[in-house]
């Protein structure tokens, strides 16, 4: 297995040097495509401003190719990219990206209408028109701090509250928001519903935030069993 991957790696490295050659259409291996020595790319320009330290392993090890969502362009946001990936169904990332773009556009339109029709300068100050800020705020408001785990003690299954890792927090917040956005009537578009949900969540209202609050309540109710974690 390892041999096959190494050979394929060599095959691929040769390709840019050799003339047009036959490339296999399918990959036979089930394991990771890149050898363990390959490192993740640093594709943001701000991260590459300083030259590399002598002892930085990126200097000596090959780097994986950047994926198709990783760019140094201003429109890249790591959280939004993750959101798009979670929203992707059956590999249709194009559609997920379209949904997110239209959702942000909708947020802008809704907020700008309020902004431009606001009577006073003071009112305008409180209207947030940047969809990215609203998105980040919505995610933050939906992140759970605790979650539950089933633990068996003395033949009884208890629901034990446990702290949540950052990745899981992010994942949960995003899935709740997506569920809130897709839970709709047939004739309403996802990007309309999702815009509405994101705006609500940014104000600490709506279905996504409610899910988080329910989970927190459950944890609070079961806090007597917190020590079962150990």
């Amino acid at each position: 297995m390892a041999g096959a991957v190494e050979q394929l790696g060599k095959c691929m490295r040769c390709m840019s040097v050799c003339k047009r050659t036959w490339t296999p259409a399918f990959i036979q291996t089930r394991t990771a495509i890149y050898q363990p020595i390959y490192l993740e790319p640093t594709f943001r320009k701000e991260d590459l401003q300083q030259p590399l330290d002598e002892l930085d392993k990126r200097k000596y090890q090959p780097i994986k190719a950047a994926t198709n969502e990783q760019t140094s362009l201003a429109s890249y946001d790591a959280v939004v990219a993750k959101f798009i990936r979670i929203l992707t169904k059956e590999g249709n990332k194009k559609r997920a990206r379209k949904i997110v773009d239209k959702t942000f556009e909708n947020i802008k339109l809704i907020q700008l209408e309020k902004y431009h029709k606001a009577a006073t300068e003071e009112e305008r100050q409180y209207i947030e028109c940047d969809p990215l800020t609203i998105f980040h705020q919505a995610i933050t408001n939906c992140k759970p701090l605790l979650t539950t785990q089933k633990v068996k003690r003395g033949g009884v299954m208890y629901t034990v509250p446990i702290p949540v890792k950052p990745n899981y927090q992010m994942y949960k917040a995003m899935t709740w928001l997506i569920d809130a956005g897709t839970d709709k009537e047939r004739d309403i578009r996802v990007w309309d519903k999702l815009a509405y949900e994101l705006l609500n969540a940014a104000q600490n209202e709506g279905k996504g935030v409610r899910k988080k609050q329910e989970l927190h309540k459950l944890c609070e109710a079961n806090r007597a069993y917190a020590h079962f974690r150990w």
């Binding site: 640093t42 780097i63 190719a65």
Partner: peptide
């Protein structure tokens, strides 16, 4: 370092 010069295998 940005991953632009690696052939995506």
């Amino acid at each position: 370092l940005a991953g632009l010069l690696t052939q995506d295998p």
